[in-house]
Amino acid sequence: MSERKLRILVGKPGLDGHDRGAKIIARAFRDAGFEVIYTGLHQTPDQIVSAAIQEDVDCIGLSILSGAHNTLLPRVCQLLKEKKAEDIILFCGGVIPEDDIPGLKAAGIKEVFTPGASTDQIVTWVKNNIIPR
């Protein structure tokens, strides 16, 4: 009677204060049957990684609208590596210019969702790409 439940951390790194998108996504993940650890606004990369490790999540979904994605997101990847937790997959969504996406992916961000992506699309991506460990 045991079954792995997908656990996912949703949070917002850095200084932007718009969490509606993150809340909508968290709700969509809940409705998809995942356990969502919602850490809210203004998280530092250290806080995010530490929470992800304590909660033993399969993946981290970060919403970022501030423009600081090229700094903050690779930092999260780097910290995951330092803490030997690179098995936790990182993906993100937000206003991210097309030109920045290859760089982010090279830094270890598995997927980048930009404005226009539907919640269904994101949930489907998680279902197809994240296997609960």
């Binding site: 356990e35 969502v36 250290d46 806080q47 304590q54």
Partner: peptide
């Protein structure tokens, strides 16, 4: 959720300062 089996666990929001 009794309907989907999903959950939003939000208690950490108030405790983030202890994360590090």
């Amino acid at each position: 959720s009794p309907f989907t089996g999903g959950a939003i666990l939000g208690d950490r929001i108030r405790m983030n300062r202890h994360a590090e």
